[in-house]
Design a protein around this nucleic acid. Structure first.
Length: 368
DNA sequence: AACCCGTGGCC
DNA sequence: TGGCCAAGGGT
C-alpha cells in the first residue's frame, strides 16, 4: 500500500538550483527583511497567512509604526489591535497574536522563543509551518515549512495525486518538504521556496519554460502542470441572513456593539445584528420604543469563503441616547473610535450614513 | 476529520 | 460575473 512518491532529486541539487534562481529572481527587499528581527518576521508571517504579499504591505507598515516592539503590542488594548487589522480578515490572527505577545512578555522575558520549536508551537496562532518559517528566517537554523507555495511546487514536481487538504496527502508533502530542506542558508532557502511558488510556479500560468526544475518536474514533463495540485472538492455555499439595525442619532452617528470573541468578525464592532425581522422588532420594542421600521431595503450581499451573507440594513432614527443599552458606542465618522470594523460593515456605514469615511482609515484602499 | 474563519485578486 | 484560491491555524 506504500506507493511512496520518491523524491525526484537530491536535496543538494534542489537547493543549488533553487538558490541560483533566488539570487537572481527572488525578493530581497521586502519590508520585514530590512531589519529581519524575530518580531518583525513573526508579524509578517501571521499577516501573510492566507493573504497575499501586496495586500499585507500597507498593513504591515502601519502595524509596525504603531507597535514597533513586542512590548508595545502586549501593552495595547485588543480593540486597537483589531482596529489596525480592519479589512485584513481572519481576525483570530490578531486576537491570537495579541495574546501571544502578552505570553511572550510574561513567560519569555519579551523574546520570541525562536530557539525552541515546542515553545513556538505553544503560542496561539503559530502552527507547524509558521513556526518553521519564523525560526528559519530569523535565526537561519534548519526548520521546515509547508505553505501553499511549497505544496503547489512539490505537488507538481512529483505529480502528486490528491487534494493537499487531505491529511494523507499533506503528510506526504511534509515528508517531501523535509527531504528537500537543506542544512545551510536556511534564511535564503525558506524565502526562496516561497518566492518560487509565488512568482514562478504560481497557480495559474506557471512559467515552466524558465523553471530550473523543468527537466525533472514530472507534471511538466507530462505537460500536466495545471492538473496539480488537485483542486478542493466544491460544495454549495450556505446562505445566512442578517438584519442590521442602523441606529442613527441626530448627529449622524451610528450605534455599534461588540461581537462575541469567537465566530465571524469575533471581537469586531457592528450594528446590532438579528437573524430575522421579528427579533429585530423585539429588540426595538425593548430599547427604542416607538421606533419606526422601514420596509426592507435591497439586501447587501457579502460572500465569505464558507457562506454567503445577505445583509438587510434597517435605518432607524434614534434621538434619545439614553434609550440604548450599555455595552455599545456611537460611531462618529468625524472622530471614529479605534475599534475593529469588518470591511463589509465599513462599506455599509459609508452607504447608510450621510458622510464618507476618511480614506486613511483603510490602508487596503489606494487613492481614496 | 471536517469545519470554521475574511478579504481581494484573478480569469 | 462567479468560482477559485492565497506565506494556515484552531476546534
Amino acid at each position: 500500500m506504500t506507493d511512496e512518491p520518491a523524491p525526484v532529486m537530491a536535496p543538494e541539487d534542489f537547493q543549488q538550483r533553487l538558490l541560483a534562481w533566488f539570487d537572481r529572481h527572488g525578493r530581497h527587499d521586502l519590508p520585514w527583511q530590512k531589519p529581519r528581527t524575530p518580531y518583525r518576521v513573526w508579524v509578517s508571517e501571521i499577516m501573510l497567512q492566507q493573504t497575499q504579499v501586496a495586500t499585507v504591505l500597507p498593513y504591515f507598515e502601519r502595524f509596525m509604526g504603531r507597535f514597533s516592539t513586542i512590548e508595545a503590542l502586549a501593552e495595547a488594548e485588543q480593540d486597537e489591535v483589531l482596529h489596525l487589522w480592519t479589512g485584513l480578515g481572519y481576525y483570530a490572527r490578531a486576537r491570537n497574536m495579541h495574546k501571544s505577545a502578552r505570553l511572550v512578555v510574561q513567560q519569555h522575558d519579551g523574546e520570541l522563543p525562536v530557539h525552541d520549536m515546542d515553545a513556538m508551537l505553544a503560542l496561539p496562532g503559530i502552527g507547524r509551518s509558521t513556526a518553521g518559517a519564523i525560526i528559519a528566517q530569523s535565526t537561519g537554523r534548519r526548520a521546515v515549512i509547508l505553505d501553499g507555495n511549497v505544496k503547489r511546487t512539490l505537488s507538481r514536481l512529483h505529480a502528486l495525486p490528491g487534494w493537499p487538504g487531505q491529511p494523507r496527502v499533506e503528510r506526504k508533502l511534509w515528508e517531501l518538504a523535509e527531504h528537500y530542506t537543506p542544512s545551510c542558508r536556511l534564511t535564503d532557502y525558506t524565502q526562496a521556496v516561497m518566492d518560487f511558488g509565488a512568482t514562478l510556479c504560481r497557480r495559474g500560468q506557471p512559467e515552466c519554460s524558465r523553471c530550473p526544475f523543468n527537466d525533472v518536474c514530472i507534471a511538466n514533463v507530462r505537460g500536466e502542470q495545471k492538473r496539480f495540485p488537485e483542486s478542493k472538492p466544491k460544495k454549495t455555499l450556505p446562505v445566512r441572513r442578517a438584519w442590521m439595525l442602523m441606529l442613527n442619532d441626530a448627529r449622524g452617528r451610528i450605534w455599534l456593539e461588540q461581537r462575541p470573541p469567537a465566530g465571524v468578525w469575533g471581537g469586531l464592532w457592528t450594528p446590532p445584528q438579528f437573524d430575522d425581522q421579528m427579533s429585530l422588532r423585539a429588540w426595538l420594542d425593548q430599547h427604542v420604543p416607538g421606533a419606526i421600521v422601514s420596509s426592507p431595503e435591497p439586501v447587501f450581499t457579502h460572500t465569505f469563503s464558507h457562506f454567503r451573507l445577505e445583509i438587510i440594513p434597517q435605518p432607524v432614527r434614534c434621538d434619545r441616547l439614553d434609550a440604548v443599552r450599555e455595552g455599545g458606542c456611537w460611531y462618529d465618522p468625524e472622530f471614529p473610535p479605534a475599534l475593529g470594523v469588518a470591511a463589509p460593515v465599513k462599506l455599509l456605514l459609508e452607504r447608510q450614513a450621510p458622510f464618507a469615511l476618511k480614506p486613511q482609515d483603510s490602508p487596503g484602499k489606494r487613492g481614496g
